[in-house]
Measured scan of single mutants.
Amino acid sequence: MAAGGDHGSPDSYRSPLASRYASPEMCFVFSDRYKFRTWRQLWLWLAEAEQTLGLPITDEQIQEMKSNLENIDFKMAAEEEKRLRHDVMAHVHTFGHCCPKAAGIIHLGATSCYVGDNTDLIILRNALDLLLPKLARVISRLADFAKERASLPTLGFTHFQPAQLTTVGKRCCLWIQDLCMDLQNLKRVRDDLRFRGVKGTTGTQASFLQLFEGDDHKVEQLDKMVTEKAGFKRAFIITGQTYTRKVDIEVLSVLASLGASVHKICTDIRLLANLKEMEEPFEKQQIGSSAMPYKRNPMRSERCCSLARHLMTLVMDPLQTASVQWFERTLDDSANRRICLAEAFLTADTILNTLQNISEGLVVYPKVIERRIRQELPFMATENIIMAMVKAGGSRQDCHEKIRVLSQQAASVVKQEGGDNDLIERIQVDAYFSPIHSQLDHLLDPSSFTGRASQQVQRFLEEEVYPLLKPYESVMKVKAELCL
């Protein structure tokens, strides 16, 4: 049975990233139509530049190519590739079939990587351009969430054990800070992308030097003109047959890092959902379990974690691919890159769409948070109580021993009897502590235990987050809708 299948058929496997999760716009960027249309555009740009620099290419040939950029006979191309065992030459023939007058000058002087690699770089750039505003929107939604809850005390956790208090907004800023680093890295790697350009079979530009009869300047002009037509500021000066596969490492490393950030955020949300302090959106008709109707599973956060793990592992592909590119190139890269580049971007696209949807509907339960604080705060307040007693004339050592005994009794009630923490009640009825009984409410005010959390939130948002989001103001209103 021949390899390949009808990918629109229910009898043929289709990647869930495309069929179930990723956005239509990201799927289109990695589609065959987008790819092969870009090949034709690159052939047109090459012909236009070659004509401008004096090669015998007519206006009629150029116009014929322009008129057929979208006229792609995919069936013919597939048949040609089956016959020739070469995808680029299959599309040269297919393009030439609908451009008979231009057929002889299509791909003039070029090698397969002229269309293959340059198209990949265009796709990487455009895919990054799709991700950047999506990530900015996630940051914006979380920034709104953090600002609104900047002063809401909550129990902090280290080692997932109760620690000092923080605020809900401050905790959210930990998430935002990681995503801001990801946004900066995505922008950097996007701006650092260079075009492969017009380089020939081993990167020496020998074929173009021959076409222009040894004119170095025209060869350099050709490279520059096509690079500018493709919208790049610069091209690699040095290439082998391909652009260095280190570029793929750079791009997928940034995406993998984004995956790590999203995994951490969504894990926190899942843990908070278990504590009943916070939940992701839950639709009115949504079913959490087929057997347990009360369940409210954090399905979206779980999906993000599941896909983020996949995204983090994909960076190993370009690392290994770059390491086995012998001399000017081997074909070890080809099949692998067809999979890992598309999957990385479709996965990143999915987790950003999902995280935006989550961040637009996060639900906080202040009463649950308050109750958990009441359970733990008495123990945390013991040092403040000791200091207040010393100020009232008591002995630190005597007070410490009193607190120690009462704390152990209260802990026994919590752990052995399943009761509430009654340390404060014990202190309130103990005559030894009568000098500070009137101060206990103040000493137990949760806001006095959150330090500068709310001020940190305000400063972080104003100095770091809002300036970073400013270039994306025009796209901030787009909502994230999930079908599944």
Rank of each mutant, 00 (worst) to 15 (best):
A2Y: 15
G4V: 13
G4I: 15
G8F: 14
G8R: 12
R14F: 14
A22M: 12
S23C: 00
P24Q: 11
M26Q: 10
M26W: 05
F28M: 13
S31K: 08
D32Q: 11
R33T: 07
Y34D: 01
F36V: 12
R37K: 13
W43A: 01
L44Q: 15
L44A: 15
W45Y: 07
L46D: 01
Q51T: 08
T58C: 03
D59M: 06
D59S: 06
E60K: 14
E60H: 06
E60W: 09
E60P: 10
Q61I: 09
Q63N: 09
Q63M: 12
M65C: 02
S67M: 10
N68I: 02
N71T: 05
I72L: 12
D73F: 11
F74D: 15
E80R: 12
K82E: 08
L84A: 10
L84Y: 09
R85W: 10
R85T: 08
H86L: 01
H86K: 02
H86F: 02
D87W: 11
V88Q: 11
A90S: 07
A90V: 09
H91R: 06
H91G: 07
V92I: 14
V92Q: 02
H93V: 13
F95G: 01
H97E: 02
H97G: 05
H97L: 11
C99Y: 07
C99T: 02
P100D: 06
P100A: 06
P100S: 15
K101L: 13
K101V: 08
A102N: 09
I105N: 15
I105V: 10
I106N: 05
H107D: 01
L108E: 03
C113E: 14
Y114R: 04
V115D: 02
V115M: 12
G116D: 14
D117F: 03
D117G: 06
D117W: 00
D117N: 01
T119M: 06
T119K: 00
L124F: 07
A127V: 10
L128V: 11
L128F: 05
D129K: 15
L130S: 13
L131G: 04
R137S: 11
S140L: 12
S140M: 14
F145M: 15
F145Y: 12
F145R: 12
F145K: 03
E148T: 07
P153V: 12
T154Q: 11
H159W: 00
F160N: 11
F160W: 04
P162I: 06
A163I: 02
T166G: 08
T167Y: 00
V168Y: 09
V168Q: 05
G169Q: 02
K170F: 08
C172H: 09
C173V: 09
W175P: 00
W175L: 04
I176Y: 02
I176F: 01
D178Q: 09
L179Q: 03
C180M: 08
C180R: 05
M181N: 09
D182H: 06
L183G: 07
L183F: 00
L183P: 03
N185S: 09
N185D: 01
K187V: 12
D192E: 13
V198Y: 02
K199R: 05
G203R: 02
Q205F: 05
A206K: 14
A206V: 12
Q210D: 09
F212M: 11
F212W: 14
F212A: 07
F212I: 15
D215E: 14
D215Y: 14
D215C: 12
D216V: 08
D216G: 15
D216Q: 09
V219P: 02
E220F: 15
E220W: 11
M225K: 04
M225F: 06
V226T: 00
V226L: 12
V226I: 04
V226W: 00
K229E: 03
F232M: 13
A235C: 12
A235H: 10
A235R: 07
F236L: 10
F236M: 08
G240R: 04
T242R: 02
Y243C: 07
Y243L: 11
Y243D: 06
R245D: 05
K246P: 06
V247S: 11
V247T: 14
D248F: 07
I249F: 02
I249D: 10
E250A: 11
L252A: 14
V254F: 06
V254N: 15
L255R: 03
L255C: 14
L255D: 00
A256T: 06
S257R: 10
S257T: 11
L258H: 04
G259L: 06
A260C: 04
V262C: 12
K264Y: 05
C266H: 09
D268Q: 07
D268N: 13
I269H: 03
I269T: 14
N274S: 12
K276D: 05
E277V: 04
E277Y: 00
M278P: 00
M278R: 03
M278D: 03
M278C: 11
E280D: 11
E280I: 00
K284L: 07
Q285N: 12
Q285I: 13
Q285V: 12
G288H: 11
S290Y: 04
S290R: 02
M292C: 03
Y294I: 01
N297V: 00
P298N: 01
R300V: 15
S306D: 01
L307E: 03
R309Q: 07
H310M: 13
T313C: 10
T313N: 09
L314P: 14
V315H: 02
Q320H: 07
A322S: 08
A322W: 08
Q325N: 13
W326F: 15
E328M: 03
E328R: 01
R329V: 02
T330N: 12
L331D: 00
L331Q: 03
D332R: 01
D332Y: 15
S334G: 12
N336W: 02
R337A: 00
R337K: 09
R338Y: 02
I339H: 12
I339G: 07
I339C: 07
C340T: 12
C340N: 15
E343Q: 12
E343D: 08
E343T: 09
A344C: 02
T347G: 11
T347E: 09
T347W: 05
T350E: 09
L352F: 15
N353P: 07
T354Y: 06
I358P: 03
I358Q: 13
S359K: 10
E360C: 03
L362M: 11
L362R: 02
V363M: 14
V364H: 14
V364M: 04
Y365G: 07
V368I: 06
E370T: 12
E370C: 09
R371E: 00
R372D: 00
I373G: 03
Q375K: 08
L377V: 03
N384A: 11
N384G: 05
V390E: 06
K391H: 07
G393T: 14
C399R: 03
C399Q: 08
H400M: 05
I403S: 06
R404E: 03
V405D: 13
S407T: 09
S407K: 01
V413E: 13
V414A: 02
K415P: 04
G418E: 02
D422P: 12
I424N: 10
I424H: 14
R426Y: 14
Q428F: 09
Q428W: 13
D430G: 09
Y432A: 13
F433N: 06
P435C: 13
H437A: 14
H437W: 13
S438Y: 08
Q439G: 11
L440P: 14
D441T: 07
H442D: 15
H442W: 04
L443V: 15
L444F: 11
D445M: 10
P446S: 05
P446H: 13
P446A: 04
F449T: 05
T450A: 07
A453C: 12
S454Y: 08
Q455C: 09
Q456E: 01
V457M: 07
V457I: 11
Q458K: 13
R459F: 07
R459H: 13
R459D: 14
L461A: 02
E462C: 14
E462I: 15
E463A: 13
E464F: 06
Y466F: 12
L469C: 14
K470C: 14
P471K: 14
P471V: 13
Y472D: 07
E473C: 15
E473V: 14
V475A: 15
V475N: 12
K477M: 15
V478R: 15
L482I: 14
L482W: 13
L484G: 15
L484V: 12
